[in-house]
Design a protein around this nucleic acid. Structure first.
Lengths: 143, 143
DNA sequence: TATTGTTATACTCTATAACTATA
DNA sequence: TATAGTTATAGAGTATAACAATA
């Protein structure tokens, strides 16, 4: 059998990396007492509060799902739901101090990508960043 | 604010890529009528039958979960469970022709990594494969 | 009338514990 | 006694449809 092209090899390696990445992220979250989805919500709140609708958009899921995720996070005091002063339909979800700590703790435990990237030498890190930028950035409508 | 190091940029870009990757894989599977987990089982059977236990090991989940996943796949005639001739406790799970077609169809629709890698020129593809090999391969015990 | 968010519901994913059949 | 797999069960993630409150 002919050896695979670099593109095909890269495809396979990327699959393996994503597999390991997802697993490591879920483990890190579970160690802190969060599901992966819950940790993801905290991640999306780290730069400031967001509305329920914006969370649904960013997390690529239905609004009713966010209602439930946020309800569980709120029950454990990791987030708070507040009213929006300018539109009484809207809710503003924000991290509590405990939620911020939990999110930071997930990151501390989720060392996989940092570890692996850190093994590359600086020139290779630069190369990788450049290639990933090419792969993630130009996103001509249809993915 | 100082601009991030290449390593930190790569970390962020990799997160974005994994996010898009997971979403695209799930969409591709759903279009074919499979959940992501079900598609993943088919993927693990493509090179030949496997036992329930081996599927659980490879998919990093509990055996009872595999029982249910395989039961649903079998109900829709995508896989078959057969007896192992040498050990009557063991079951051999195999793709049916329909299962093989479904798995191929998921791949056809899941163009994300191939598309993005395909946008790089051949030298860049070679570089990327090399870097990913360094990141995925050397895995000194603790991840 | 359109939008934001919730509720009710149903299905899937997942793990734990207890179990059956076989080795 | 140990192993392969199943069953029962429960909690979480997810979407659809119907709904309430507000704009």
């Amino acid at each position: 059998m002919a050896s695979p092209t670099p593109a095909v090899r890269a495809e396979q390696l990327l699959w393996d990396l994503v597999y390991a990445y997802d697993d490591a992220y879920e483990r890190a979250a579970l160690e802190v007492g969060l599901s992966a989805a819950q940790a993801c919500v905290l991640e999306h709140l780290v730069d400031g509060p967001a509305t329920m609708g914006r969370l649904a958009d960013e997390m690529l899921c239905d609004a009713s799902n966010i209602t439930q995720l946020v309800a569980r996070l709120e029950a454990r005091t990791w987030v708070e739901r507040g009213a929006d002063p300018t539109d009484r339909r809207v809710k503003r979800v924000a991290l509590t101090p405990a939620g911020r700590r939990a999110r930071r703790e997930v990151h501390r435990r989720f060392r996989l990508p940092a570890d692996r990237i850190g093994r590359l030498d600086p020139a290779q890190q630069e190369q990788l960043a450049g290639l990933l930028a090419l792969m993630t950035d130009p996103d001509p409508e249809r993915v």
